[in-house]
Simulated assay, not measured.
Amino acid sequence: MKALTWHGKRDVRVDEVPDPVVQEATDAIVRITSTAICGSDLHLYEVLGPYLTTGDILGHEPMGIVEEVGSAVTHIAPGDRVVVPFNISCGRCTMCAEGLQSQCETTQVREKGTGAALFGYTSLYGSVPGGQAEYLRVPQAHYGPIKVSPDGPDERYLFLSDILPTAWQAVQYAAVPEGGTLAVFGLGPVGQFAARIGVRLGHRVIGVDPVPERRAMAARHGVETIDPDRFDDVPAALIDLTAGSGAHGVIDAVGMEAHGGAGATAGKIAQTAAGLLPDRVAQKLIETAGVDRLTALHDAIGAVRRGGTVSISGVYGGQADPMPMMQLFDKQVQLRMGQCNVRRWIDDLLPFVEDPTDPLGVLDLTTHRLPMAEAPAGYKTFQEKADDCIKVVLTP
């Protein structure tokens, strides 16, 4: 089969690789019909290369048609249309029972001290072949895959694999009271959905992003937007917009490669240095030093009201990032974060995506749909935010 594989920093290629096969009774094989490039895939394209091996298959936002199932898989069958959550969870352990599928005790990558295994996301999360491919082996398929209607375009359901539940969890974690204000830093795909969910739940939503096309898309869905490049002090601007108090909840949907500010510059230097080192040395640097660009996170902390909540959905990778502890303590800020527990939120989200009025605008997110052969160009365009690119979906 053909699959998108990693070969080095900013070097991904479509290669011919062996077809996956059922290895365990709980496996399924899915023929992929659509698979997206996630913003966190760009961290693999730039920063997290030390945890990848040449030939690793990328991608963790897939859906398709079931081709084969193991003997223990009964809730789906060949011919079913399914969405595959990006985290691999068993549904039976204590963590899954508590709705923390991203911490699944069955698939935790204990040798790395990390949570549940993820599709296509480095040795930190199990080196499981990803979904930017013609076929995908799905472990724990007795629980993970979500059966969806055979009707309608893939984009109606595709984003249930990651970014839609990630956005829903981010808003839930932000704990905005009825009639309160939600600020969203970063209007990429997760930020777009988080902002729309906030509007749908009745909150005032302010989105922060330097890219005009992202602000315009958010504005179509009732989101107030600001360009952070217009302000020397972005938190002060948000505080001014909220009658001097700050937002009740703030979502950082940016993560480790934030744009702008002295913190971003220092983080970029550290990320570049890590990228120039041998993999084992670079891994040690990432695991012991502060290598993240923290502009968005620090601005989120500055913009939240006293007693408010900062919800972090953007991916961070540094172990020793500087944090404004005095400010956090003095303002009595709550922090909530973590990989999304996809299966926990599916019952909440299915009514929205199945609603023919498309209340969350799942059909108004994809800006680029490309054949798999053009996946390398898709990564480059998305990484550079060129050609008004907000979301790339690949068709194998």
Rank of each mutant, 00 (worst) to 15 (best):
V148K: 00
F119V: 04
L42K: 04
P324I: 08
C90F: 06
L349N: 07
V223M: 04
A237Y: 04
T225L: 06
Q339H: 15
R137W: 04
L360M: 10
P18M: 13
T309Q: 02
G49R: 07
V315Q: 03
I312G: 01
E224T: 09
T74A: 14
T288M: 09
K147D: 11
E98K: 14
L118T: 11
I346G: 07
P145S: 12
T181L: 03
Y125M: 11
A72Y: 01
L365S: 08
V109P: 00
V281W: 11
D19N: 12
R137K: 08
A282W: 04
Q319T: 10
V17N: 06
I32F: 10
E111W: 11
D80L: 05
Q172N: 15
V128H: 00
T288L: 09
Q383A: 14
I226L: 13
E16S: 14
Q169Y: 12
L297A: 08
T106R: 12
I29P: 08
G290M: 13
P165A: 07
Q140S: 12
V12N: 08
G59N: 03
S245C: 08
G113T: 13
A174N: 07
Y143Q: 05
A141M: 05
A303I: 04
V223A: 10
G361S: 05
D19Y: 07
P210T: 03
A289I: 00
A289S: 15
R215M: 07
M325S: 02
D240M: 00
G263M: 10
R280P: 05
M337T: 15
I301L: 13
P150L: 08
A195Y: 08
L360S: 02
H142M: 01
P278W: 06
E46M: 03
V353G: 02
T225I: 01
Y143L: 06
H368A: 09
M337R: 11
A264S: 15
D19A: 15
T107E: 10
V315K: 00
E68S: 07
P145D: 10
T309N: 04
D252I: 06
E105I: 01
A373W: 06
T94E: 15
M256C: 15
V73T: 01
T295Q: 11
